[in-house]
Design a protein around this nucleic acid. Sequence first.
DNA 1: GTATGATTCATACGAACGTTTGAACGGTCT
DNA 2: AGACCGTTCAAACGTTCGTATGAATCATAC
Lengths: 231, 231
Amino acid sequence: MTTTTTTTKDRLLDAAEQLFGDKGITATSLRDVTALANANLASVNYHFGSKDSLLAAVFERRFQPMNDRRLQMLSELEAEGSDHPVQLEQILWAWLEPPFHMRHQSGDAGERYMRVVSRVYADPNHSIHELFMQQFETVRDRFHDAFARALPTVSSYEITRRMHYCIGSLAHTFCWCQQIPSLCSTAEPQSDEVLHSLVAFATAGMRAPADFELVSELLDSGAATPQAPSR
Amino acid sequence: MTTTTTTTKDRLLDAAEQLFGDKGITATSLRDVTALANANLASVNYHFGSKDSLLAAVFERRFQPMNDRRLQMLSELEAEGSDHPVQLEQILWAWLEPPFHMRHQSGDAGERYMRVVSRVYADPNHSIHELFMQQFETVRDRFHDAFARALPTVSSYEITRRMHYCIGSLAHTFCWCQQIPSLCSTAEPQSDEVLHSLVAFATAGMRAPADFELVSELLDSGAATPQAPSR
DNA sequence: GTATGATTCATACGAACGTTTGAACGGTCT
DNA sequence: AGACCGTTCAAACGTTCGTATGAATCATAC
């Protein structure tokens, strides 16, 4: 193998990304990171300043390109179909494909990175939570508008909620694809079978009739025993 | 206020549940827990043995009743409709209502508990991960069968995947309902608006046509620039 | 009252953590 | 050669953590 010369900074980022993704963020010590990166313990504080800043650097390295890809794909959809509204499935593809694209990038690194992101999602008390929200703001607003145009009958609140359901499905998929083989692509790992499955699921979910208020009325007449709604 | 007599063990469980849910598990020290519970530091190790065992106790206290409720509701559905298959939406209601029922139980305690569960979901390296999977096994298998009967055209693998999408949506909702007000029920907190919204989303998602293999063929003829599927 | 077992208490231990320090190293200029 | 600057190094600092210990306290039964 050709040992390409990498800087200590890059090796620290790679090691941190891997360990944060595999073991969790708080469970990973700087001694773990520096040992894996073949670097000195003090190098983290020299290059990044602190563990939190290292996490932020790991996060930012791939998040911006991923979101740029999302926005680019959405813009192209809106440009080529300026006469007719963009199909819902296309919007979801533009939203969900970039994470999978990132995942299959540079070996396992992308997959580990997505696990880091998913973990940050699940722990809103992390130091980079604000950074996370800030960098995601533009994507969120742009796609919210696109969804609102494609789903004129669904309220803005409901679109926000359903977008969060999609995010949850996406994050959960990346968190568990390591543990549950059937969540990964079974055959060839580069296959986008899960991506297509998720887009199909999310498309149908986003398009769900927003008449569940009626269901709640049906439920109010339920018995003491828990009762499921009957259509 | 009436100071009801509670045992130290119960106060420790309540405090741990609250702090694990609010601050995260690893970010919560036993000193935090015992301080909030007005107990001595050593009481945790006396009553539970270790921090991990405390987490397991917090987890088990509400998990079993919640899953019992799920199984009971599903059994009632299958019993009352023995002549016709159970509606998909009813299955999802039996699956997703108990977590919300738990959430609204005993004040904020249920909501904090659900955050703990969601965090454990996102961090598969926790010590209680095995306990989690073990206790969830029965529910998972029973509902998988129900979904398979209600969705005869969807493969078993795809049902497993879609169940995970639903779990992700559910966990994400509980993780973020604290941070994002619109994810909570806006008007009255006891309202089940979010539950109905989630059931509608999940029902539509589970019922999605499983023909996304066709989409991948359409995508293969894409240009160099990232292209979204066009139906 | 006193013995007994369960609980609570203050305190300490050893380990692991993030961070800091100051010297040593390795290039690149004049 | 010597000065300069970015980088690496071993070692240590102070803190916090989970856990352990032994005495003190309490409730109950004789």
